[in-house]
Design a protein around this nucleic acid. Structure first.
Lengths: 338, 338
DNA sequence: TTGTATGCGTTATCAA
DNA sequence: TTGATAACGCATACAA
């Protein structure tokens, strides 16, 4: 395998010239550059990673810690992992995957051995020991999600409160006065991530501000449970005419089936909005209006903030990404009678 | 951050003694070892990764290439990724995650920059360009799955044919003479991984060997499609009394619901076996007998084979892991009448 | 049992 | 615009 000396020899220049030509950190004469380029191609030269790490100040690797808890929804989880890896590549960074059972030890290991330049923390829970550790290590890091104590940390997340408020606004603007939120299973709210709570709070708060009736119901993902939860809000008085679903894909489908099973139509009898899903709701029957959770958005920003910490100081912050709304025809005015 | 010189100074020994003490590659005097250990703890020393990579012959990193195709089932995919990372740690290896849109370029990059010692290839499809590339690069690698052309490659996978045969044997041994296999959506068989095909072939072949009726039906994952597929085998003449399901989790649940919906009981009216799932079938209603696909099995073996390639030659091979059977009470003798 | 010295491949400083 | 050379931190062959 060719090294920088080989390239220098073939090109008839010194190794430092080769290094500078490749890094672009100082101007190189036109003819020299051409000779070097030719030598690089001829030898199929690629800089040795270890050599670069040792001599340079960067390893060009980020650690990614992404525990898979029991209440984690695998497809969304995977989407975030891939989004981080993809975003990292845009900055010429690779991603080292830390395992769950090595969460803190792994972080300690890769940072104190200088294997990585920084850390991306995924699926942050309220009392996340990784948040504490990152703060203690003082290593460049970006969290995707918000821990209970975000002091001194750089965090990025969707603005779930604003997302829920946006859903409420859309429904109220369409004329609905009785809304319901179908949320995750109860266990998700008790411990773990705080985004379900933020979504719920945003929903209830904005509904109160708008002066409309609002109900919040949690549901397990099995269709029977979903049917029961749905009955709770559709058979109530007043019955909900606007529904926001903040849950995983199967729950959305179960909701639509249950609604159809009751002989109701969307949006004729019931307006429905999907809250912060990572999956595609435009292929559902019927397609659902959606305020999407786009992994690439938060992950790209997190990687960007991690990179910026390497050669400048980035002020600690909780950066919330504004939600967007996509119409697919599942929201309409409520029936005059209801 | 302390380096090996600091440790040597504090312990009052040379750096080579520190190095050998830490690597255990030569005997160290008792008192010396204690002084070094004390110094290491005092300085919180951890060897610099880049220094080790450069001086040693190992980077202690494996690349993991795991594309997420449209027909990939995310939970299973995630389970394999984690299993590889966990297995790698047992050999003191870290895992670098390559992105899908950089599949071959990424492999080329990390191997020719010597960032990794080897490559683990996940979710191998029949015409997988990564298989060709790995062969061409001549880099230590282990594939999980079997490409169309496995010449010169080290591959590990569950023995899907044997798994299907085992399912057939169990049902036939219980007295069933009319079996059915409910498989993945059609697109999965046309292109992509070859394990669905291997399972199907194993099923049909063993059924023929045992002289029983066997039907194979593909199904999409939506409950209505599953119901239709199920009707196809239960309303046929002769009706199937033994069913093997080789599909994702939702399909299993839809099958059980549909069976219950027809007023049939498992295993009273229909015996059911889950074929090669990565999820838990013991919590289903009713629990299902299962021939599990255990990511840790194949991934651990793949990592082991990758490690062995680093300091010895490993003969190319396709190593198939023998299937196992777990009873949960979903198989019984067919009703006398049927 | 321990120490000395060299090299791994690159970056970056200092000279020219 | 280019070159010589000293780190970077460690592993290991060779000496003692």
């Amino acid at each position: 395998m060719a090294n920088i000396h080989d390239v220098a020899r073939v090109a008839g220049v010194s190794i430092s010239t080769v290094s500078y030509a490749l890094s672009g950190k100082r101007p190189i004469g036109e003819k020299t550059r051409l000779r070097i380029d030719a030598a690089v191609r001829e030898l199929d030269y690629m800089p040795n990673a270890a050599g670069r790490m040792l001599a340079g100040t960067r390893t060009r690797i980020f650690a990614l810690t992404a525990p898979l808890r029991s209440d984690t929804y695998a497809p969304a989880h995977m989407a975030f992992v891939l989004a981080v890896a993809t975003a990292a590549r845009k900055y010429d960074y690779d991603v080292l995957l830390l395992t769950e059972d090595e969460a803190t030890d792994g972080l300690r290991r890769v940072s104190s051995s200088r294997l990585v330049d920084g850390i991306i923390v995924l699926d942050v829970s309220i009392n996340d020991e990784r948040a504490e550790l990152v703060r203690a290590l003082g290593v460049p890091a970006a969290l995707i999600g918000v821990p209970g104590n975000a002091d001194g940390l750089v965090c990025v997340d969707l603005d779930f409160e604003a997302a829920a408020a946006l859903a409420v606004d859309r429904l109220v603007d369409a004329g609905h006065t009785s809304l319901a939120l179908l949320g995750h299973p109860g266990v998700v709210y008790e411990r773990g991530s705080n985004f379900p709570t933020r979504f719920r709070d945003g929903f209830l708060r904005r509904a109160a501000e708008r002066g409309v009736t609002a109900r919040f119901t949690m549901t397990e993902k099995d269709p029977p449970e979903v049917r029961a939860a749905l009955s709770g809000v559709l058979d109530a008085v007043p019955a909900a005419t606007g529904l926001v679903v903040h849950a995983e894909e199967g729950v959305h489908k179960a909701v639509l089936e249950a609604v159809a099973g009751r002989g109701l139509s969307v949006p004729g009898d019931l307006s429905v909005i999907a809250g912060a899903p990572t999956f595609d709701t435009s292929a559902f029957t019927p397609p659902l209006d959606v305020i999407p959770l786009i992994p690439a958005d938060t992950c790209t920003r997190a990687v960007e903030l991690a990179v910026q910490q390497l050669d400048g100081t980035v002020a600690p912050r909780v950066e919330l990404v504004a939600p967007t709304y996509r119409e697919h025809g599942s929201v309409a005015a409520p029936r005059p009678g209801s």
